[in-house]
Structures are given as structure tokens and as C-alpha cells.
Nucleic acid binder design. Structure first.
Length: 878
RNA sequence: GGGCGGUUAGCUCAGUUGGUUAGAGCGCAUGCUUGACAUGCAUGAGGCCAGGGGUUCAAGUCCCUUACCGCCCACCA
């Protein structure tokens, strides 16, 4: 071991790139479809191709890497399949922003040029996030990297669209859709974010055509008045009974519209009369269908009023609102304006207020697809972790509405539908159809629209493995095992993968969905680039290293919970790396020339103790990992490595290392414990563990391929009990030293009076006590009387006396011991009360009762000693 | 309008199927150049586990309820 490679402080920059390159060169991430082994597959949630890694990605991919690295070590044929998403609308917006800066736009540029531009953009930025994932340490099989718009994925998209169309599960039609006037496209219901907004409710009077009376409607969007084609009232509403069937006059445009009766109308809201605008409101659209009303489109796709809006044509929708209100007021028809809170739809991408519009779009018929997807989850074939997300999924799926999949965008998968320019015939096919079956002409034009980004994402688990071909990867690695993703895309993505997979592969896409929370800033707010509250994970990696970032994101967090990012936690993780590093340095310094293959030497109590604890932490970590409690597993390993291995075993081993008789046992144990700990920590902290593991004697070429530890069940209970007792004794001595201000370098004399049957344990531990408590000499004497003027502690198994004549304040010492006694008595009383309860003895399990008995004995015994000492003290021999 | 999550030490959070004296990190206090580590070591202080009710031999944990915080879904204009 060359210690010069091991500086006092861990320097991640010295090791991370080295080992990542090594893993890549050795192709250790490469998956093999090996029929001898069980496959374990994860497909990455593909990040946006032009994006960069944010802290949420860092968390999500760390979790995946932990899972996949452990499975790889366990011997599974693992595949972590990486890739990127074309992110149709998101990318579109970015490119359009760039164009806008150049003073142009996509319509000026034209579709072909725009696409060239988009591909160039993708080439330029597409690698950013991939290289960032590599820096994070992700062990993806890069040879299988995919892109949602590559040939294979595109092929799958076309295939799926055509098959759905042929089954009648994709249809085209004029329906109410959500239009984003800024993005200039329709968006799906999911892409509309509802936000409670303080608005107004305007009461507007419509004169009756008969010339007699009015009917007053209430609306939040007065500009849609221009598109009204009816006024509706509830048929039970007596107030309007006489008006139903009559005509009202639409103000300003003077169109005559009927008053109709419809149960949809709530008599108690507003005036009980609703203006009906079938072209601009989903409910009104339905009413229009029920009553055969015409739809008049008054707001265009640019958010401006159309020619149908008469005098308001050309105005922006909000300008129109203001003008129209002025005009109505002037006419005396605006009778009341109330404050009104309502949910306004905003575009998920650009935050513009979404305009409901009727337009001709493509839809996926959801009911038939949802049914099996609901069943699969209900039957537990797909399991959500944590379980509560099952209900979120089911609730959405059970109420799902048809999915609008066409987008008036260019970057994406173009819809494989063709229209005959001569007769209007529609043909859905992969390539341009030959000849129109209806009119015999050959003038086809492809649908200009592209598909919703999530349409291709929905196919990701199987399209990336080769579907629709009969591919070897698909055969071996599919269905995948676990999907790791955030709860924010359960509907967008998870749900859609499930129904698409069931429809096209007849199998679930994954059997488990491991949901992770959001990473929030220190104030608990969502991180936002625009607000400058975002943390750049690359900055954390540069400053502290990837292992630190990974560990800080994972340790101590419960599945599905949001995480609050804070730098203190990062520093904590960095300190842990450093702790590991220095423990490794210590062990390397002391295991030179050590041969791990040599048969194990005779082990001492502490050796067996730490090996027992190690076995225990292996069991605990495995149990936690099996149930996706990654944060708990990390915490257990942290606690073991720091509090047991470093704080105790390493310190104790210093004695043994200086003693020829025990040296080999200590070296063996140090090595064994450290090597196993590195394997356990490797999924969490791949770089530092590789560096340390490689420096230790080892068999094999990389820790990432070493065998994952399994518990043997060798707990060394007896050693553990003895060691726990001695630790408490050492702590008590240290405590007394601190209490009485004994300077640290000064050895203190200790007289230890052991309780029954513990003498040999204490006796054996004298050198350890001496070293760890700075105690010298340490005498163990069963019959020892308390020396006058002693500081005293009573622990389980012993009374401890520090003869400190002159330093002890007699009264204070007595008070201190009285407090101790009172504390023990409190516990003893509680235990006695429990044991005195007959129903406790009757109903509690035996082992619980036994434990309680043991507790009582222990408390009694300690209390007895304490009280004996107190009686001596009151006798005056302080 | 439905639904979900949270409320545990000053702060950020763990807490398995109910079962020792409720834990950690940070912060705080005191003292330390102990030959792996001051990114460290030792010792200590700090908790009516949000309030109320219930189930149970036993509740931070299960049930009901209230309050506050956060989130998701939702076509009352």
C-alpha cells in the first residue's frame, strides 16, 4: 500500500474519473442476456434531451443506481437502460425562444428548416445530461442508450398509433380542447394546471326578444358572450319557468338565442341562468350537443377575437373583455360585479391562461385501455411503493377521460395519417399511401401535427428493448422489474406505460413502481431556476464529490417523502466519506503484508463483537433494501461504520495491534470488516468504496462485481452483551472524569466492583478500559469497599469508584447519586407496576414478560448497590 | 367539492408487523494537537411524540375527532 496515495483528507476529484473510466473500459455496465442468470431491469425515466441535470434527477438516478448496483453484485443479469426524451413541447419552446431572440419565428422559418434547427439543437445539448449522469456515477448500459425519436422508438410509435386506430382506440374529431395561445397548440387535460385566482363574476342582463323583461346571467368570462347560442336554466327553477322556450337577445351583437332548460344548471349559483357558449366551455359544449345548439367560435387560436366577434374582431381576449364590459355598462346591461374565486387553467409549460376551444384533434379512447390497467394494479401485479400511491393511480385511472394526443407542433413524432387532397379520404399508415381507395387520386398530404411527447414515453419500457421486433433483449429483460420515478408523473407517464404495455405486450411493463419525493430548497419551496433557488448538482459534485451528493440525498429519507436540501447535510455526508477514508488509511497502515486467504486466527472478544455487529448490519441493510427503505439502509451503514467500527473497534484494535499475540486477529478483523463495509456501501458511494477496496487485499477486479454481503446469523450474543456492559462502564468513567474536571492526559485510578458472574469479563477488559478511559491502574475486586472520597458510578454489572480525595464535594456527590437512584427507582416502579398487572402476565407474549423480569432484576440490583453506597455516605465517610 | 401527506429535541428528519429508559445529524455547552480523521475525539444539556377521545395488558405507532401546514385531483358558469 502506498500511503502517499492516501492523503489525510479524501479528495474525490482524484478518484472519481479514474474509476468511472475504468468501469467503462471494462464494460462492467454492459448487460448480457445470459439465460443462466435471472434478469433485473430498470429503464431510466428519460430526461429531456436538451435539459441539464437538476437535483431531482440526481436523487432519482442515485436511487436507481443503488438498486441496480446491488442487484449486479447479487449476481443478477442487470440492465439499466438509459436514454433521453425528445420532450416535444419543452424543446419546442426553447427553440422558439432562440428564434425569437433572432427576431424570427418558426412560421417564418418553415417546418423543414425548423426541424434541422431542432436536430442540431439536440446534437448540441443532447449529451449534457448524459455526461452529468456519468459524473454522478450511474452504471447505465450506455451501449443501449436510446432516444424517443430514434428509429426504433419512432417505429414503435407509428406501430402503436396504427394498431390503436385499427382497433378504434384512436379517433379524430371536433371536441372541446385546451388551447394554449402562446404555445399555439392544444394540450391535454393533464397539461393544464388549475390555479385558484381572484376574479369577478359579472351579472349581465339579456333583454327578451318579446320586448318584455330580461334574463340575467352570471359569467366570469364576459368576452364569450359573443359566442353564446343559448341561455340555460334549471327546469325546476320556477323563476324562469315562463321564459323557457322564449328567445333572448344577445347584447351588442343582437343575436336571438333561445332560453333552454337543462339539469346541469344549479339554480343556487349566480342568477340561476347560465349563458351557453358551446365553442368555449366544456360544459356548454356538452349542453350544445344535448340541445343541438350551434357553436360560434369567437376566440381564435392566437387568443384574439375572430370575425364572429363583430365589432371586437381582432382584439386580444382580455382587451375585448374590458371593452365589452364598458359597452355593456353603457347600455345599462351590466347589473352587478362580484368578487369571485375560481380555478383558472394555465399551460403547464408556459403558464399562459388556457383557452377552451373546439378543435379537430386525435384522441385515445381511454375506457377500454384503462380497465386492464386498473385490474393489474388491483391484483398487485404492479405494486406502488409507498403503497399510498396506489390509490392516487387508481383514482385517476378510474375517472380518466379520453387523451388528446395531437399537438400543433413540429418537433416530435408526426402523426401517420394522410388526407387525400382530392376527396378528403383519411388513411392511417406508416408510409404515404399509394392511391386513394375512394377517388383513385394520388394526392396525399400527411397530417401536420405531431404526437404528445408522453405518447412515445408510454412505450419506453418495451420500445427501448426492441419492440415491435421480436428482439432478444425484449425476450430476456422484459418485463422490467422496478420503475423509479417521482410522484409528479404518475399520471403523465406511469399510468400510460401500464395500459400501453398491457395492450401491446400483454404484460405489465414493471412489477414495482418506486416513487420518490421532490427535492425542495431549505425553505421547503419547490426549487426553481427562475427564482434562483435551484441547487446545481454539478456544483455539489465539484465541491464535495459524487459520493457525498448521493449519500446526502439518500440517507435517512423515507420513501416517497419530499426532501429538504441543505448544505449541512451535504457536509455531513462529506464528513462521512472522510471518516471512511481515514478508517481505511488506518487499516491500510496496519494490514501491510496481510494475507486474507490465510485461515482465520483465534479471535478475541472484540473481534467477535464487531463481526457480530457487522453481520447484524448486513441483515438490517438487506431487509431495508429489500423493502426499498434505502434511506434507512444508508443510515444503518453510517451508524455501524462510524459509531461501532470507528469509535469502538478501531480504538480497541490499537491495543491488539501492538500485541503480537492478538495482532493477527485484529488485522484479520479489521480487514474483513472494512472489506465487507466497502461492499455494503458501494451502491451508495461507488467511487470511494472502489478506491478503498482496490487498495485493500482483494480477489476480483472491482468492488462493483464483488459478491453482495449476506448475513450468516452469527450474532455473537454473549460477546455483545459483555461488550455493551464494558462500554457502559467506560462511558461512566469518562463521564466522571468530565464531571470532576480531570484533565484528559491524566490517568485516573479506578476500582471496579463487579456484580455476580461478571468478574471475568471486567478482568479481561482491564487493558481496554485503561486505554479508552485513560484509567490507570484499574483494579477489579469483588469484595472491594468504596474508598473514602470517591466519585462513584453504578452501571449494569459493576460499581465504579474513582478515588479522588480532595476533589469531591461530599454533599454534591451525595445529591448526584440520589438523583441517579431516583431515576432508576422511577424505571423500577414502572416495571414493577407492569409485572404486578395480572392481565399483563396473562396476555403479553412470554418473551415480553421475560424481558420485563430481566429489567426488574437489573434495576433492583443497581438500585441496591446505589442505596448501599448512599447509606455509607450518610454514615459520613465521604 | 373530493382525496393524500405532514405536525417527534432550537433546526432538518428517522422511528419496521403496537412491546426495553423515543433516536440521528446539525446547532448549543464544556474539555481536548490521545500516533486514521479538528471534515476529528470525549462528555453533557435539550422531547406532555400538535390538542381531545377511544381500542389494548401495552400507543409516537391502530381507530375517531379538532386545529394548523403542504400537496394532488375536480367541467358551478
Amino acid at each position: 500500500m502506498a500511503l502517499d496515495q492516501f492523503p489525510k483528507a479524501y479528495e474525490p476529484a482524484r478518484v472519481e474519473e479514474k474509476w468511472y473510466s475504468y468501469w467503462l473500459e471494462q464494460a462492467y455496465f454492459r448487460a448480457e442476456a445470459d439465460p443462466e442468470r435471472t434478469p433485473f431491469t430498470i429503464v431510466i425515466p428519460p430526461p429531456n434531451v436538451t435539459g441539464s441535470l437538476h437535483i431531482g434527477h440526481a436523487l432519482n438516478n442515485t436511487l436507481q443506481d443503488i438498486i441496480i448496483r446491488r442487484r449486479r453484485m447479487q449476481g443478477y443479469a442487470t440492465l439499466w437502460l438509459p436514454g433521453t426524451d425528445h420532450a416535444s413541447i419543452a424543446t419546442h419552446i426553447k427553440i422558439e425562444e432562440a428564434l425569437s431572440k433572432e427576431g424570427t419565428n418558426r412560421f417564418n422559418l418553415g417546418r423543414e428548416k425548423f426541424m434541422e434547427r431542432a436536430w442540431a439543437w439536440k446534437e448540441q445539448y443532447g449529451n449534457t445530461i448524459i455526461s452529468q449522469l456519468k459524473r454522478l456515477g450511474c452504471s447505465c448500459d450506455w451501449s443501449r442508450e436510446r432516444f424517443t425519436m430514434d428509429d426504433g422508438c419512432s417505429r414503435a410509435v407509428t406501430e402503436v398509433f396504427i394498431r390503436l386506430y385499427q382497433k378504434g382506440l384512436v379517433y379524430r374529431g371536433d371536441y372541446m380542447t385546451n388551447w394554449c395561445p402562446t404555445c399555439r397548440t392544444v394540450i391535454s387535460d393533464l397539461e393544464v394546471e388549475h390555479e385558484d385566482t381572484a376574479g369577478k363574476l359579472y351579472h349581465v342582463r339579456y333583454p327578451m326578444a318579446s320586448g318584455e323583461g330580461y334574463i340575467t346571467v352570471a359569467t366570469t368570462r364576459p368576452e364569450t358572450i359573443l359566442g353564446d347560442t343559448a341561455v340555460a336554466v334549471n327546469p325546476e327553477d320556477r323563476r324562469y319557468a315562463g321564459l323557457t322556450g322564449q328567445m333572448a337577445v344577445l347584447p351588442v351583437v343582437n343575436r336571438h338565442i333561445p332560453v333552454i332548460a337543462d339539469h346541469y344548471v344549479e339554480s343556487t349559483f349566480g342568477t340561476g341562468a347560465v349563458k351557453v357558449t358551446p365553442a368555449h366551455d366544456p360544459n356548454d359544449f356538452d349542453m350544445g350537443v344535448r340541445h343541438g345548439l350551434p357553436a360560434v367560435t369567437v376566440i381564435g387560436q392566437d387568443g384574439r377575437m375572430t370575425a364572429e366577434a363583430g365589432p371586437y374582431a381582432g382584439l386580444d381576449r382580455y382587451q375585448c373583455r374590458r371593452r365589452l364590459l364598458e359597452d355593456l355598462d353603457e347600455l345599462g346591461l351590466l347589473v352587478k360585479v362580484e368578487d369571485h374565486q375560481h380555478a383558472l387553467g394555465h399551460c403547464h409549460r408556459c403558464n399562459s391562461v388556457v383557452e377552451p376551444l373546439v378543435s379537430r384533434q386525435w384522441f385515445v379512447r381511454m375506457k377500454p385501455l384503462a380497465a386492464p390497467a386498473i385490474e393489474a394494479v388491483k391484483q398487485g401485479k404492479v405494486r406502488f411503493i409507498p403503497e399510498r400511491f396506489t390509490r392516487v393511480y387508481l383514482n385517476w385511472m378510474e375517472n380518466v377521460r379520453d387523451w388528446c394526443i395531437s399537438r400543433q407542433l413540429w418537433w416530435g413524432h408526426r402523426i401517420p395519417a394522410w388526407y387525400c387532397q382530392s376527396c378528403g379520404e383519411l388513411e392511417v399508415s406508416e408510409r404515404t399511401p399509394a392511391q386513394c381507395g375512394r377517388c383513385g387520386q394520388d394526392q396525399w398530404e400527411q397530417d401536420p401535427d405531431v404526437l404528445d411527447t408522453w405518447f412515445s414515453s408510454a412505450l419506453w419500457p418495451f420500445s427501448t428493448l426492441g419492440w415491435p421486433e421480436d428482439a432478444q433483449d425484449l425476450d430476456f429483460f422484459y418485463p422490467t422489474d422496478v420503475l423509479v420515478t417521482g410522484y409528479d408523473i404518475i399520471f403523465f407517464w406511469v399510468a400510460r406505460m401500464i395500459f400501453m404495455a398491457l395492450e401491446f405486450t400483454n404484460e405489465i411493463p414493471f412489477s414495482e413502481v418506486f416513487i420518490n419525493g421532490l427535492v425542495r430548497d431549505a425553505q421547503g419551496q419547490k426549487m426553481s431556476k427562475s427564482k434562483g433557488t435551484g441547487i446545481d448538482p454539478m456544483e455539489v459534485i465539484s465541491k464535495y464529490g459524487a459520493d457525498t451528493l448521493r449519500f446526502s440525498l439518500v440517507v435517512g429519507n423515507a420513501p416517497g417523502n419530499d426532501i429538504r436540501f441543505n448544505w449541512e447535510k451535504v457536509e455531513g455526508a462529506r464528513n462521512f466519506c472522510n471518516k471512511i477514508w481515514n478508517a481505511a488509511r488506518f487499516i491500510l497502515m496496519n494490514t501491510e503484508g496481510f494475507e486474507p486467504s490465510a485461515s482465520p486466527p483465534k479471535l478475541g472478544t472484540w473481534d467477535r463483537w464487531i463481526l457480530g455487529r457487522l453481520d447484524r448490519v448486513v441483515a438490517d441493510a438487506n431487509r431495508a433494501l429489500d423493502s426499498y427503505d434505502l434511506g434507512e439502509a444508508a443510515q444503518r451503514l453510517y451508524d455501524f461504520a462510524w459509531n461501532e467500527l470507528c469509535d469502538w473497534y478501531l480504538e480497541v484494535s490499537k491495543l491488539a495491534l501492538g500485541d503480537p499475540e492478538h495482532r493477527d486477529a485484529a488485522r484479520y478483523t479489521l480487514y474483513k470488516t472494512m472489506e465487507t463495509t466497502m461492499r455494503l456501501l458501494h451502491p451508495f458511494m461507488p467511487f470511494i468504496t472502489e478506491e478503498v477496496w482496490q487498495a485493500l487485499p482483494h480477489a476480483g477486479t472491482s468492488v462493483m462485481l464483488a459478491e453482495w454481503p449476506q448475513a450468516t446469523g452469527e450474532a455473537y450474543e454473549r460477546e455483545n452483551a459483555g461488550v455493551q456492559m464494558v462500554m457502559a462502564g467506560i462511558r461512566a468513567i469518562r463521564n466522571l472524569r468530565a464531571e470532576f474536571g480531570i484533565s484528559p492526559g491524566k490517568p485516573v485510578e479506578v476500582l471496579l466492583r463487579p456484580a455476580d458472574n461478571t468478574r471475568s469479563t471486567w478482568q479481561e477488559m482491564v487493558p481496554v478500559i485503561s486505554r479508552l478511559a485513560q484509567a490507570d491502574p484499574v483494579r477489579v475486586d469483588e469484595g472491594a469497599a468504596r474508598p473514602a472520597g470517591s466519585a462513584t458510578a453504578v452501571v449494569e454489572g459493576a460499581s465504579i469508584y474513582l478515588p479522588l480525595a480532595g476533589l469531591i464535594d461530599f454533599d454534591r456527590e451525595r445529591e448526584r447519586l440520589k438523583r441517579d437512584a431516583a431515576g432508576i427507582r422511577l424505571e423500577l416502579d414502572r416495571t414493577m407496576a407492569r409485572l404486578a398487572n395480572p392481565s399483563f402476565r396473562q396476555r403479553a407474549p412470554h418473551d415480553i414478560v421475560d424481558k420485563e423480569e430481566a429489567k426488574r432484576r437489573q434495576f433492583e440490583e443497581r438500585l441496591e448497590r446505589l442505596e448501599h453506597i448512599l447509606s455509607l455516605l450518610s454514615g459520613g465517610d465521604g
